[in-house]
Design a protein around this nucleic acid. Structure first.
Lengths: 156, 156
DNA sequence: CGCTAGGGGTAGGGTTCT
DNA sequence: TAGAACCCTACCCCTAGC
């Protein structure tokens, strides 16, 4: 039928993450063309990268709760005239616990079916991902902060 | 970033079709400036019109067999607003004198197995669209024929 | 410089496979 | 039933060429 279904290797996954750190979320083609990653990702298309990142993002915060529940709230969307601000799509109540700092990851700690050894690594991994995603979504011009994550990223 | 992504409403789509009938394919700016349509299409650019027409043409011509299946199975799921207008259907089975052959514009990186006969769904609007496009492409000076389509177009 | 045609890229809903 | 990988447009941007 379709393509043979090729599972992502950890090398590819790492390259993707590094690529996102370097070029940003949504720059799939750019990441793919970067000589730094093309060697690893040459079998993947830009769409593949996008899809994979989507999966990773879900994993990174999907276990917890908020942030992604907005997807469920979306079903009917008709914008005849005078559309609303696209960024206002998330009607989450900015009450107390928001996505302010790099804290939300704590919340995802309770429901983790992981086995012992890699636990901390995965945790940090998710932390980074969440941080990056959040930074990007909230305007993400904070280059220095992102740069800071690069070091952490390559610690593993 | 780019533009906020504005989905086309059925009103806009109808206006575009009517505009094409009135001014012809490729006269995007003209359609846009026509007072008859500017009220509906005022937040679209000439390029937007062109792009949308491209989509519509693809739909009218080479709809993949998978799409056909999906359409058939389409859930009776209520439409909140008035999308999916009453053009709805011409359920009778298309015999064999359907559409010509128009291969999908697709460059798949992997296997390209299926190719078969393009038996498009016979939706009235698709027929109209095809007819208009064909007329235009083949010299399209058959004004009377086009005029005939106008009536059909506005029958619903 | 305005306009159209066409190539390209991304987002997101769907579908298929495991 | 779920999740991962892949598919299919809808929509937008860019630019060559007139």
């Amino acid at each position: 039928m379709g393509a043979p279904k090729q599972k992502w290797t950890s090398e590819e996954e790492a390259a993707l993450k590094a690529g996102v750190v370097k070029h940003g979320v949504g720059k799939w083609r750019t990441i793919l063309k970067d000589p730094e990653f093309s060697g690893v990702l040459y079998l993947r298309s830009n769409v593949d990268l996008k899809d994979k990142w989507r999966n990773l993002s879900v994993m990174a915060n999907g276990w917890s709760s908020r942030e992604k529940s907005r997807l469920a709230i979306r079903r009917v969307h008709q914008a005849p005239k005078h559309d609303e601000n696209p960024f206002a799509v998330a009607p989450f109540t900015p009450s107390d616990e928001d996505i302010v700092d790099v804290k939300p990851i704590q919340a995802s700690r309770d429901v983790v079916p992981f086995s012992g050894p890699k636990r901390s690594i995965v945790r940090l991994d998710n932390l980074i991902m969440e941080a990056i995603t959040t930074l990007k979504e909230t305007g993400g011009s904070n280059k220095t902060t992102i740069a800071a994550f690069i070091e952490v990223l390559f610690l593993f």
